[in-house]
Simulated assay, not measured.
Amino acid sequence: MGPVTPLSLAEASDSELLARHVAGDDHAFGELFRRHKDRMWAVALRTCRDPELAADAVQDGFISAFRRAGSFRGDAAVTTWLHRIIVNACLDRLRRVRPTSPLPEYDLADHRDHHSSTEVRLDVEEALARLPDGQRAALVLVDMHAVPVAEAAQILGVAEGTIKSRCARGRAALAEHLGLLAGEPETGPRTS
């Protein structure tokens, strides 16, 4: 293989870049990182809910991918493989960290009539933060990043049915929480 120019790296597929990295190309993984860092950052930020944890998880994940590139079997897309590594790095970080203070409580009377788009976004982020890690990870991938259920199952290492049920339970919990924030009365007894 002759010298690789930046143009040929930009034209290479993700699989080709990973193969070139394993073969010793010093620039191939940098191109892979450039292509996917923004999407991986978005997944990490929504999964971790904390910019510092997300940054650490993205760094951990890409270092892991860099080191483990030779173990990539090609039975899934490179992006699926990267998602799996980043989400696992997020979950590892979340397991190691304990919150130092509880989530702030909303005063519904103060916020009911003053929702701007920023406050609504913060409400969704807060509701998402209350979900169990597995439900949050499934919703982030499927609903926020439009990852197909089958691919999300591969990324998280669970069955497709598990992804579907986590998404359904997570959506129901989000709807209930957001309905309460909007001032809608709770309907029926809570069973969870």
Rank of each mutant, 00 (worst) to 15 (best):
A150Y: 10
L174V: 02
E176Y: 03
A152S: 05
E125T: 10
E176F: 12
Q154D: 15
R166Y: 14
H177R: 15
A127S: 04
G157N: 10
Q135N: 09
Q154T: 14
G157K: 00
L128I: 00
A172F: 12
E126D: 15
V142K: 03
V158S: 03
R169W: 04
C167N: 10
A168N: 14
A127R: 08
T162Q: 00
V158W: 01
G170V: 08
V140K: 02
G157R: 03
G161K: 06
A175Q: 15
R171M: 09
E151S: 11
V124G: 01
I155G: 13
R169K: 11
K164I: 01
V142R: 00
A150N: 12
V124A: 13
A137R: 07
G179I: 09
R169F: 08
I155W: 04
Q135F: 09
R169P: 02
H145Q: 05
I163T: 03
E125Q: 12
V158M: 02
V142E: 06
L181M: 11
G161D: 14
G179W: 12
R136P: 02
A173C: 09
V158Q: 07
P148Y: 06
V147N: 03
K164Q: 13
V124H: 12
L139N: 01
L139M: 08
A153K: 03
L180D: 15
D133V: 01
L174P: 04
G179S: 14
V124L: 13
G170A: 03
A150F: 02
D133I: 04
R130D: 15
R130A: 07
R136D: 06
G170Y: 05
A129V: 00
A153D: 05
